[in-house]
């Protein structure tokens, strides 16, 4: 992205009519700038910042409503600290998210590589083929996986027909595995996109240089292509990992009692009216766990110019 704006000396503007304000670049009048930015800034403050602040406040309350709402307490945080069930569930959610993110990236990388280097002029069309499923109904696609993994499902029927198994495998459905398979399926297109973009940015000259210097194709891949695509891989990791940590819909639909994640407990605290302060505390803990690595990676990226010095 060009960044001429910061190079231009600030133009002082007093009167629009005199033609001082010739360019759209440069500094416009304050009122103009305010009109441009204020609506979205207000939206972000009212619907994002204030709700988050409210939730921080709620996490220190004894109860959400009634007399207990005036009592300041660390009870919810202590509860989390002492309750190994919460910690276990959080640990499991992080583990599932990690597995899902890594599997999605491993499965998506060859697709991205093929699109970037071997698809030729069909690139655009193949890219569309890849992303269209991602935009169709999330719930219905998860429902479809119930039909595939269930004990009378497509997979079992198919395997029995093949003669590989005699009895339906019952461990497929309502298990952690079902959650992982479904989520990997959901995320593959999202993981492929940033990797594809990163691969497109690699200058072909670099690979030619490597091969001119005697590198075999696999050496070229491991020494040039893979390292240069790391920003895309990291972005893909975050795209998948972050939403998965808070996921609760997929576990509720295909996970069964063993496949539940921390999001399901948060949902229960609020929607079954159990304990709003505890739910707020758990939400904040999830948010911190998710955002801290993100900030760390963003900072590292800025310092090393990992993302090609993009201005955002």
């Amino acid at each position: 992205m060009r960044d001429e704006t910061s190079l231009n000396p600030p133009v002082s503007i007093k009167d629009g009519r005199g033609g001082i304000e010739k360019k759209l670049t440069g500094i416009p009048r304050k009122s103009q700038l305010a009109l441009l930015v204020a609506p979205s800034a207000l939206w972000l403050i009212i619907l994002l910042v204030l709700p988050l602040i409210t939730m921080i406040g709620l996490s220190f309350q004894k109860s959400a409503f009634g007399p207990g709402s005036d009592v300041f307490t660390f009870a919810s945080y202590l509860n989390f600290w002492q309750n190994s069930a919460y910690q276990g569930l959080l640990g499991k959610s992080l583990w599932i998210s990690l597995v899902v993110a890594v599997m999605s990236i491993v499965l998506a990388y060859p697709v991205a590589y093929f699109l970037a280097f071997h698809a030729g002029d069909k690139q655009g069309m193949l890219l569309n083929i890849l992303i269209i499923p991602a935009w169709t109904s999330f719930l219905l696609r998860v429902l479809a996986w119930r039909l595939i993994l269930g004990s009378n499902g497509l997979l079992n029927t198919f395997l029995i027909w093949l003669g590989v198994i005699q009895e339906p495998i019952s461990g497929l459905f309502y298990s952690v595995n079902a959650v992982i398979i479904t989520l990997v399926y959901i995320w593959i297109p999202f993981a492929a996109l940033p990797i594809y973009v990163a691969l497109l940015r690699i200058e072909p000259g670099l690979l030619e240089a490597a091969s001119d210097l005697g590198a075999r194709p696999w050496q070229g891949f491991f020494k040039v292509t893979l390292p240069l695509s790391i920003p895309g891989v990291l972005a893909a990791f975050l795209y998948v990992f972050i939403p998965t940590v808070g996921e609760y819909v997929t576990p509720a639909l295909v996970g069964g009692p063993n496949g539940l994640m921390i999001g399901n407990i948060i949902w229960d605290q609020f929607m079954r009216g159990l304990d709003w302060p505890m739910g707020a505390t758990l939400s904040l803990i999830v948010m911190l766990i998710v955002l801290l690595p993100l900030m760390f990676i963003a900072k590292a990226a800025q310092q090393t110019g990992l993302f090609g010095g993009k201005s955002e």
Partner: peptide, 25 residues
């Protein structure tokens, strides 16, 4: 950075925060 937060925030955290804000505040 602020404008990209909705992109990286788990849906449940966003939903819960708004629920509390709308109902309680």
């Amino acid at each position: 950075s602020l404008a990209s937060v909705p992109l990286v925030m788990p849906s449940i955290v966003l939903g819960v925060a708004m629920l509390v804000f709308f109902r309680k505040v």
